[in-house]
Design a binder for these strands. Structure first.
Length: 706
RNA sequence: AGCGGGAUGGGAUAGCCAGGAGAUUCCGCCGGGCUCAUAACCCGGAGAUCGGUAGUUCAAAUCUACCUCCCGCUACCA
């Protein structure tokens, strides 16, 4: 299916993946929201009627568990985060037309209505499954509420997946020796009736849907595997209180009070059912607020709307399989595009919230940086689906060279010249050369939007500014004011026209700075209310002395920020060396086996050596990691605790003979995830053959090596 | 392991989907210019056989196959 180019006559909605209400936002998260905001603003600049919505994702086991551990209700726990998000986004000029949350009345009502429709259409069936239950606290234990032993590898595992061991996803009822994660009570299994959504019925539809899906290619390609290998039906209910109650079979259920009625009484909907529905609900709330004559949510979601989902690439499947199947089954409009962003790395490595290795949203602002700078960086640093690396150095370079040097400088030099010599725009009209160059920029901008490339759209303005610098330089108006005043006026008029075009075309990326520029140009109204045509409308006659739009970031600031970050990481790392391990993993390589090569000439200090916590350990168990050629998972007793360590020794040793072997490990190496298995330390071994180091005597496990 | 995304001058990135003059932009480097401008800006130059191998083609960074190395995903985590 091919789509008409933007702008179309239909209303569009741009949605951002819902932030999950249980933690702070960092620069990595911001990428998706900035991306969505830029895209929706750009659509509007093209003249497309657009709603931009999102909301907080309030439900789910993690919220319930975290709330429990803090001793507050899930609702107030999630609402607290919701309020924070709601306040944070505008600070980055991410201006949703509506920002709701999944627990509000609108979402509850629409969710129930959709689920009922799916039932009526015959897409939902019941099935008995085993669910863990805490008989002492009289509580069912879905997902992460239960812990126990993995039936496959014998590791300690969470109810939903073997998070420490083999990484398998566990079906409810599979885990052995279940205990409650909340109370610690031993749990038992009970047979429960759950609801399943017949996703498998949609495989043909979804396959066609993907063929016509626009956006980034990863969103189109990644889910194909699932369809080709056969879609599984989807359990859409959970045994818990926190969530949207599963709508009763009869149409008469109103609130959530009647939950003891029948077999499905305690069931709430799985969070991934009501989360995307918030896109619809949020749009409806927008309509409710401004009136259907301005924006009609039903035309969008039940008519011919242009639905664009902006998400992180980790939730592609939800938006390209489950969600369109639900929409289809319930008779809603299918999405036109899914834009799945790549991740943001920090200095080449993954963000790690537990190690505090992150640049937090609040922190960025507290450091005094303008939000538009970060927007520019995130939006234009690479293709949307590509990973983007953030570092203060790169940030400084791009701000100083591109925003200050190219864009800011062009605007300032032109407008200052215009103001000084003409008190505004000189009397002239745009030259053919500049007019066509601006038209070119508009085309590039439009093409960028239609390619779902916010980078291209953003660069259109920067390129135009670059042309402006070249143009003013080439024409040297400062020489012409005396020799050829008419020509000087012409050149400066052109420059002001370019400045105005930049204001229009760059506004999606830098809304605040472009609004300031617009005002500086003496234009009426808001730059956010105009469309691309305004770029060629003659500029206002008079304006005041301009101000510099962007400021340079001094090198010292970068050093300072890097030091702060390092110090913080060091502190966080120290903290968890000797106690609770953090949950987050880091993408680092521990597989680098030394070749027999030259000696390193760089010397390290004794202090640096002492930072290594090297210990004697004893292998308790060893097993190959399924699917991996070289990796083996080891349990190593290091006295104080038993560590899981992944080592590249699978084919080099007889794993069965390893238990009992005394080994040497680095205990404070940062954690890594190898082949999906967490490695908490490093086994020392020599050379390509991985000759395992041991001790000569019989030092006990845990003995420190120095 | 399967699947997805990468591998392009010193660094970072574009192009590839719609194959065609030895390739974009930013930084860095060398040389020059300008002085309106936030030591900014403009011009010129050096520098890449576009991860490897084999194909298709008159023609491949761009298509196909295989391979290597990174990153990610793999459904009842959100």
């Amino acid at each position: 299916m091919s789509h008409e180019e933007f702008p179309t006559d239909a209303p569009a909605v741009v949605t951002c993946g819902l932030p999950y209400a249980n933690g702070d936002l960092h620069v990595g998260h911001l990428r998706t929201y900035v991306g969505g905001d830029v895209f929706s603003r750009a659509l509007e600049t093209l003249g497309q009627q657009t709603a931009f919505v999102s909301g907080s994702d309030m439900h789910g086991t993690p919220v319930a568990v975290n709330a429990e551990s803090e001793g507050v209700s899930p609702e107030s726990f999630a609402l607290e985060w919701h309020e924070i998000y709601k306040e944070t986004f505008p600070k980055f000029n991410v201006d949703f037309d509506n920002y709701g949350h999944t627990h509000d009345e609108t979402n509850t009502a629409i969710t129930r209505s959709i689920v009922r429709t799916l039932e009526q259409e015959g897409y939902v069936y019941e099935k008995q499954i085993m669910v863990a239950y805490d008989p002492i606290d009289d509580q069912y234990l879905p997902d992460r509420y239960v812990e126990g032993t993995c039936p496959y590898c014998g590791e300690h595992a969470r109810g939903d997946e073997c998070d420490e061991g083999c990484q398998r996803h566990l079906e409810p009822g599979e885990i052995e020796d279940p205990i409650s994660a909340i109370s610690g009570n031993p749990a038992e299994y009970r047979e429960r009736t759950h609801k399943f959504f017949e996703v498998s019925a949609f495989s043909e539809y979804l396959s066609d849907f993907l063929d016509g899906l626009e956006g980034t290619s990863n969103a189109r390609n990644q889910p194909r595997e699932w369809i080709e290998s056969g879609l599984k039906d989807w359990c859409i209910t959970r045994d818990m209180d926190w969530g949207i109650d599963y709508p009763g079979a009869d149409a008469s259920d109103e609130s959530s009070s009647d939950r003891e009625a029948d077999g499905s009484s305690d069931l709430v909907l799985y969070v991934w059912v009501d989360a995307p529905i918030e896109y619809i609900s949020s749009t409806k709330q927008y309509t409710d607020r401004i009136g259907p004559d301005v924006y009609d949510w039903e035309e969008t979601w039940r008519g011919d709307g242009e639905i664009v989902h902006v998400i992180g690439r980790d939730i592609i499947q939800h938006h390209t399989i489950f969600w369109p199947a639900m929409l289809r089954g319930a008779g809603y409009t299918e999405p036109r595009a899914v834009m799945a962003s790549g991740f943001v790395t920090l200095g080449g490595k993954g963000f790690s919230t537990s190690r505090n290795r992150a640049v937090w949203a609040e922190e960025y602002l507290e450091e005094g940086f303008h939000p538009d700078l970060l927007r520019y960086y995130l939006a234009t640093n690479g293709g949307f689906q590509q990973d983007v690396d953030f570092s203060w150095e790169k940030f400084r370079d791009r701000v100083n060279n591109e925003l200050v040097g190219t864009v800011g400088n062009f605007l300032y030099r032109s407008l200052l010249f215009a103001h000084r010599n003409y008190a505004g725009t000189p009397d002239a009209s745009v030259s053919p050369e500049v007019e066509s160059r601006i038209e070119e920029a508009i085309e590039a901008f439009t093409a960028g939007v239609n390619d779902y490339s916010i980078r291209d759209a953003g660069n259109a303005a920067v390129r135009l500014a670059s042309f402006g610098n070249e143009y003013i330089q080439r024409n040297e108006p400062w020489k012409l004011t005396d020799d050829d005043p008419e020509q000087a006026a012409q050149v400066i008029f052109d420059c002001v026209q370019i400045a105005k075009a930049i204001a229009v075309l760059f506004a999606p990326i830098a809304p605040d700075r472009c609004a300031a520029l617009w005002a500086q140009l003496g234009e009426d109204g808001s730059v956010h209310d105009v469309t691309v045509d305004a770029a060629l409308v003659p500029p206002a006659r008079s304006f005041d002395e301009p101000e510099e739009l962007f400021e340079k970031i001094p090198d010292e600031r970068v050093e300072e920020l890097n030091e702060k970050l390092e110090a913080r990481v060091a502190e966080a790392t120290d903290d968890d060396t000797d106690d609770a391990p953090g949950e987050e993993t880091e993408t680092t390589d521990t597989t680098d086996m030394d070749d027999i090569e030259p000696l390193t000439t760089d010397r390290i200090s004794f202090e640096e050596f002492q930072e290594l916590d090297i210990r004697v350990g004893e292998i308790v168990s060893a097993a190959g990691i399924e699917g991996a050629d070289k990796l083996a998972k080891l349990e190593v007793d290091i006295g104080l605790e038993t560590r899981q360590i992944v080592a590249g020794i699978k084919q080099l040793h007889d794993l069965e003979s390893l238990p009992g072997t005394r080994v040497v490990i680095v205990a404070n190496l940062e954690k890594a995830e190898l082949f999906g298995v967490e490695s908490n330390g490093m086994l020392l071994a020599a050379g390509e053959k991985a000759d395992i180091l041991t001790t000569h005597g019989d030092a006990a496990p845990g003995t420190k090596i120095r």
